[in-house]
Simulated assay, not measured.
Amino acid sequence: MAGARIERLVTSGTFSLDGGTWAVDNNVWIVGDDSEAVVIDAAHDADAIVQALGGRILRAIVCTHAHNDHIDAAPDLAARTGAPILLHAGDLPLWKHTHPDRTPDGELADGQTVAVAGVRLTVLHTPGHAPGAVCLYAPELAALFSGDTLFAGGPGATGRSYSDFPTIIESIRERLLALPHDTVVHTGHGETTTIGAEAPHLQEWIDRGF
């Protein structure tokens, strides 16, 4: 087992889209060891993220998608650490809603890997919740970072702009449920789950248009 570990930081703020605003708690995931790390979804509070990093070198700020609650602290965190912001190109229109004057530093593509602390995070393009939504799979850690694609109890929301229910179901079926069932799913909000816990319920989600 590599020296990398997974840390969760919960930050609070708001999510805004289609004219509405809601209070939310977000999971910020930090993957790394004592010397370096990557941040998955820089949500709400750059100060808290910097404190959690504790002086480690930040290799990248990886965005699972570009809803404002997952990216609002990203430019500030990048400015303070020098780390690049990485986002799938499919979510650039959403990104511009929040940061019209600052573009990401690099693009995420399906199959790309992000290396840190001896492990590799493989990018899985999983559209549906957002066009450029991605998950990150770290087999050495038996971990999937699912953003808002898959939660404990079902898929992410698809009732707002830029989202599509049949697309998210296809992403989950083809890309996520094919992973080992003991893979721990580290979600964008709420508690973790496993692929094995969620896989039996796919047809239920389809039947009720979850």
Results as ranks from 00 to 15, higher is better:
residue 102 R to C: 03
residue 137 Y to K: 04
residue 80 R to F: 07
residue 78 A to S: 15
residue 96 K to F: 04
residue 136 L to R: 07
residue 148 D to A: 05
residue 122 T to P: 11
residue 84 P to M: 06
residue 116 V to C: 04
residue 111 G to V: 07
residue 98 T to I: 05
residue 100 P to Y: 04
residue 62 V to S: 01
residue 115 A to V: 00
residue 100 P to N: 11
residue 103 T to D: 12
residue 137 Y to S: 03
residue 101 D to N: 13
residue 109 A to D: 00
residue 91 D to W: 01
residue 86 L to R: 10
residue 148 D to K: 13
residue 162 Y to Q: 13
residue 98 T to S: 12
residue 99 H to F: 11
residue 144 L to I: 02
residue 104 P to H: 05
residue 127 P to V: 02
residue 64 T to Y: 00
residue 101 D to P: 05
residue 153 G to N: 07
residue 85 I to L: 12
residue 98 T to K: 07
residue 97 H to T: 04
residue 98 T to H: 09
residue 117 A to Y: 08
residue 154 G to Q: 12
residue 122 T to M: 14
residue 74 A to F: 08
residue 114 V to G: 05
residue 84 P to Q: 06
residue 81 T to E: 07
residue 123 V to C: 09
residue 118 G to N: 13
residue 125 H to C: 03
residue 142 A to V: 05
residue 73 A to G: 09
residue 65 H to R: 09
residue 129 H to R: 09
residue 105 D to Q: 08
residue 149 T to A: 13
residue 148 D to G: 04
residue 106 G to D: 03
residue 137 Y to R: 03
residue 145 F to G: 10
residue 155 P to G: 11
residue 68 N to Q: 11
residue 118 G to Y: 10
residue 71 I to Q: 12
residue 163 S to V: 00
residue 83 A to K: 10
residue 64 T to V: 07
residue 144 L to P: 01
residue 162 Y to I: 07
residue 97 H to D: 12
residue 75 P to S: 06
residue 63 C to S: 10
residue 77 L to H: 10
residue 159 G to Y: 14
residue 136 L to D: 10
residue 88 H to I: 02
residue 124 L to M: 11
residue 140 E to Q: 12
residue 136 L to H: 09
residue 150 L to H: 03
residue 69 D to V: 10
residue 88 H to P: 00
residue 89 A to D: 15
residue 115 A to S: 15
residue 143 A to R: 09
residue 137 Y to N: 01
residue 61 I to C: 07
residue 149 T to N: 02
residue 80 R to Q: 15
residue 74 A to H: 10
residue 74 A to N: 14
residue 80 R to W: 12
residue 162 Y to F: 15
residue 99 H to C: 15
residue 87 L to Y: 00
residue 113 T to Q: 15
residue 95 W to M: 08
residue 148 D to C: 05
residue 124 L to E: 09
residue 92 L to T: 15
residue 139 P to K: 13
residue 122 T to V: 02
residue 75 P to E: 09
residue 148 D to R: 07
residue 65 H to I: 02
residue 159 G to D: 14
residue 158 T to M: 09
residue 73 A to R: 08
residue 158 T to K: 11
residue 157 A to E: 15
residue 103 T to W: 06
residue 157 A to I: 08
residue 125 H to Y: 10
residue 147 G to Y: 01
residue 91 D to H: 01
residue 83 A to D: 01
residue 65 H to E: 13
